[in-house]
């Protein structure tokens, strides 16, 4: 069982047991996950590392309530996600989870501030859009539309949008995948800062092994299974990374 020393005293946020995901593609069955056990603890920053097709996105989607497991159980605190209804999952995403995606998924018709506001308006205890944009270093770009922002800036707006509701967990799927390394590092800095200052449990999916150095814990997935879990005794700051 993975139980790294630095998190032993912390609360268990996610608990996944025997998670299997099979996609029925007509006549072919694709096994994306083949029995995954994983625990995520409050406040830790975990990097899920693996080549494409290893099942990391599927795992993240199941944790985020975007997809359902074929077999196994996933719980978030006391809540069993694997048996939750569509309505419950929507509520779960709305209150507890922040998402950051490879392609940002900003609403082009809303300004940076409004892209954040569309989430804070429906969250129970959000920070203001201004606060969260300050936190990712975009205090001076609040009234810009996505088309007026660079890729890195757009991704930081997406992070601000994800954290503004003060989620318990932040799930990031290849957040730097569409960015060059300099910009990517700026984005990782923002994620690291959120994790540090707000204590948000953060899971980052990447195929870029260099990013793993900034994690508390690194989970390697191969072929739908967890191949290895390592704990970083010495975390690197994002500025120290390069690829």
């Amino acid at each position: 069982m993975p139980s790294p020393s630095c998190t032993t005293e912390r609360d268990l946020v996610f608990r996944a047991r025997g998670v299997t995901k099979v996609y029925d593609m007509g006549e072919v069955q694709v096994h994306a996950l083949r029995g995954v056990d994983l625990d995520l603890f409050a406040g830790e920053l975990v990097v899920l590392l693996g080549p494409s097709g290893s099942g990391k996105s599927t795992l993240l989607n199941i944790l985020g309530g975007l997809d359902t497991a074929s077999e196994g159980e996933v719980s978030y605190h006391d809540r069993i996600l694997t048996s939750a209804s569509e309505r419950e999952l929507t509520e779960y995403r709305r209150v507890h989870v922040g998402f950051v995606f490879q392609f940002y998924n900003l609403i082009p018709s809303l300004t940076a501030r409004e892209n954040v506001a569309i989430v804070t308006e429906i969250a129970p205890d959000p920070m203001t859009p201004e606060e969260s944009l300050e936190l990712v270093g975009l205090g001076d770009r609040m009234d810009h539309f996505p088309a007026q922002l660079s890729g890195g800036q757009q991704q930081r707006v997406a992070i601000a949008r994800a954290i503004a509701k003060r989620p318990a967990v932040l799930l990031c799927d290849e957040p730097t995948g569409a960015l060059d390394s300099t910009t990517g590092i700026l984005v990782l800095e923002a994620l690291e800062r959120v994790n540090r200052e707000l204590g948000t449990t953060t899971a980052i999916i990447t195929h870029n092994a260099d990013i793993a150095a900034m994690a508390d814990r690194v989970v390697r997935l191969v072929d739908g299974r967890i191949a290895e879990t390592t704990t970083n005794t010495h975390k690197k700051a994002p500025q120290e990374l390069h690829w």
Binding site: L66, T90, E91, V95, N105, L106, I107, I118
Partner: peptide
């Protein structure tokens, strides 16, 4: 549809 799906992911309901 892409925008709307993103919003669903962010927690907006079908009604919204």
């Amino acid at each position: 549809s892409r925008e709307l799906a993103s919003l669903r992911v962010l927690g907006l309901t079908r009604g919204e």
